[in-house]
Write a protein that binds this DNA or RNA. Structure first.
Length: 577
RNA sequence: CGGGUCGUGGCGCAGCUUGGUCAGCGCGCUCGCUUUGGGAGCGAGAUGUCGCGGGUUCGAAUCCCGCCGACCCGACCA
């Protein structure tokens, strides 16, 4: 490959695009890799397309090596299969739907579980056809409420989605493990530093679920790690270690007048002021905060639910929803209709609604909490004596410094990441609804169990840019760079010709070459552009050409070395290994 | 979907409060000459439905209403 900048469709921008905020978006636009074309949609320019193709090739290669077979479905699909699985409605506003000229409903697919499963149903019949691992690389559509970050979150994006079909749980577990290892290889080859975090499986159902997060400050996902062990998890999936139950030593429950204290802060202040229970060292963590939420179970009446947690913690509704999935949860606000729920003064004693408590609320713990009367609170409200929760719930926000649930020794740290991959054991949700049965070795029907494995390819390009840049521009990993070497003809006279001659020689040796052969462009501009474009090595054919020397530059370290022109091909070939 | 900021040549911006030589600046682009190792110099040029639609007015980039779009925060997010 030999690209000449004199004819390449490329325009680098000297100034920052005003509508780009995150580094990857800014640099990809400024360096001429992408250009916005539609709300949440980007045109890949020649250089951007080269990078995406290299990313895609790596993914294809590893998927095939893992036993995957590539297929390709239409992106425009009929409604019916999605009605069968319920996703036409369950997917909600995120689903891009279209009507054809006859008014018939179609959708622009966000994922393809239905189509893959129907294909498997159509083309298999015997245990001999399994296990099966199919994948495709397809444009996916989601009517995102808010697109952001250029390629990071668009309404249209390129995704590799794979689905495995096994006839046994053991087979699924084995396939899942193989895909997990494959993903680690893929992301390592892409140069992406990543964490594998346990995730909740969400509305898709299924048991094991892990997300691959490329660490980046601009990432939308917060995940926790441990200072001691290798635990990593999405905040939704973090479990709280429960302290051991205690013997009841607290005195009997006592009710106090606490006027004007509907908030934890005001309650703690008043409790100390009045020395409730003889104490003046009340802290928010001594109080039990009781929050009322409305749980919207699909197809059922909403449930009003109370959640108890230490008063120094906020409720994290995402964590609550993760537990109660597929139900959605909102804060309850219709206190007028429930005189039994006294806003600001709710206690767990004698509640008429279901009450779930934070795991820290173990039997024997004594709390300062509401007395279920306006302007009154109670001290020494003891779990297991004065109230018994209907269960525990992971509702409290996770904080840095919280104890690690895995090793118990370390503290949790919080970092941000870009979700670039997600794998999970889907189970039989889809094979059940489509009644996919095949004959087993004993002649009896067996229902395959599924795994699902996705990688956002266009997003991965952005994630790579996010992790590999400096103040001068992009710094592509060699594995995905649009070219292996960037030859800069720095000056006048024969330098452009010499650069092109060198480029042709390298190209013949199988090296991807970009030559800056633009006439009448000053060396300074060419150097700046080379640094912005981020091709890992460049060769400057310039002032020492007459002496037979070129200059090699390393984009990452910015190191320069003089090399005899005749040796350039050899040096680069050696570096490429 | 809520809150905020913003839409003016390809890009970055000024002008808007106070309607009337305000359609302007820098970069980029074209042509000529010079220059050529760190975003060159001089000269001459081209490029705008001022996001879209309606309204007010003798007159609207400027005021009013509606819509669309972008970005940020939040909600949402296989």
């Amino acid at each position: 490959m030999l690209l000449r900048m004199s004819t390449l469709l490329l325009k680098t921008l000297r100034e920052e695009p005003a509508d780009a905020e995150v580094p990857s978006h800014r640099l990809l636009v400024r360096a001429g890799f992408i250009r916005r074309a539609a709300p949440g949609g980007y045109t890949l320019l020649p250089l951007g397309k080269l990078v995406l193709d290299r990313v895609t090739a790596i993914v294809q290669e590893e998927m095939v090596a893992a036993g995957g077979q590539e297929v390709s479905f239409p992106a425009l699909l009929p409604r019916e299969p999605y009605d069968v699985t319920g996703r036409w409605t369950e997917y909600g506003d995120l689903l891009f739907t279209v009507k054809d000229r006859r008014g018939v409903d179609h959708l622009l697919a966000p994922t393809h579980e239905e189509m893959f499963t129907l294909l498997v149903q159509d083309m298999t019949g015997s245990y001999r056809d399994f296990p099966l691992l199919l994948f495709q690389i397809q444009t996916k559509f989601r009517d995102e409420a808010r697109t952001r970050g250029g390629l990071l979150r668009g309404r249209e994006f390129l995704m590799k989605d794979a689905y495995s079909y096994d006839l046994s749980e053991a087979g699924l577990i084995e396939t899942y493990a193989r895909m997990r290892a494959t993903y680690q290889r893929i992301f390592t080859r892409l140069g992406l530093e990543h964490a594998i975090v346990s995730a909740v499986s969400g509305a898709m159902g299924g048991s094991a679920s892990e997300e691959f997060l490329a660490t980046a400050e601009v990432g939308e996902d917060t995940f926790v790690g441990c200072t001691v062990c290798d635990y990593a998890a999405n905040t939704e999936a973090v479990t709280t270690p429960a302290p051991p139950a205690r013997a009841v030593t607290a005195p009997a429950l006592a009710v106090h007048d606490t006027p004007g204290t509907p908030s934890i802060a005001s309650l703690v202040a008043l409790a100390n002021e009045r020395a409730l229970g003889g104490r003046t060292d009340w802290a928010a963590s001594d109080t039990l905060k009781n929050v009322v939420v409305t749980v919207h179970h699909p197809g059922r009446e909403p449930e009003v639910l109370a959640i108890g947690l230490p008063g120094d913690r906020e409720v994290d509704l995402k964590r609550v929803e993760a537990v109660l999935s597929p139900a959605t949860v909102t804060m309850f606000d219709d206190f007028d209709s429930r005189p039994d729920l006294v806003k600001g003064y709710i206690g767990p004693q004698n509640l008429k609604i279901r009450y779930l408590a934070d795991p820290r609320v173990v039997p024997g713990t004594a709390w300062l909490t509401g007395a279920n009367e306006s302007g009154r609170h109670a001290t020494d409200v003891v779990a297991g004596r004065d109230f018994t929760p209907d269960g525990t719930i992971e509702a409290a926000e996770v904080r840095p410094g919280d104890p690690c649930p895995a090793c118990g020794d370390g503290a949790l740290t919080m970092r941000r990441g870009i979700e670039i991959g997600h794998i999970f054991q889907l189970g039989r949700r889809y094979t059940d609804v489509f009644k996919v049965d095949v004959l087993g070795t004993d002649g009896k029907a067996v229902r395959p169990t599924m795994g699902c494995y996705g990688i956002g390819l266009s997003r991965a390009v952005a994630a790579i840019a996010e992790q590999h840049h400096d103040e001068r521009g992009l710094v592509w990993p060699a594995t995905v760079a649009p070219a292996d070497v960037h030859i800069v003809a720095a000056g006048k006279d024969g330098q452009i010709e010499a650069a092109l001659t060198l480029g042709a020689a390298l190209s013949r040796a199988g090296i991807r070459v970009l030559v800056d052969d633009r006439p009448n462009v000053s060396a300074g501009v060419k150097f700046t552009d080379a640094e912005l474009l981020g091709i890992p090595r460049s060769v400057v054919v310039g002032r020492r050409l007459d002496e037979g020397y070129a200059e090699l530059r390393d984009r990452r370290t910015l190191e320069r070395t003089e090399v005899p022109l005749a040796d350039v091909a050899g040096v680069i070939t050696r570096e490429l290994g």
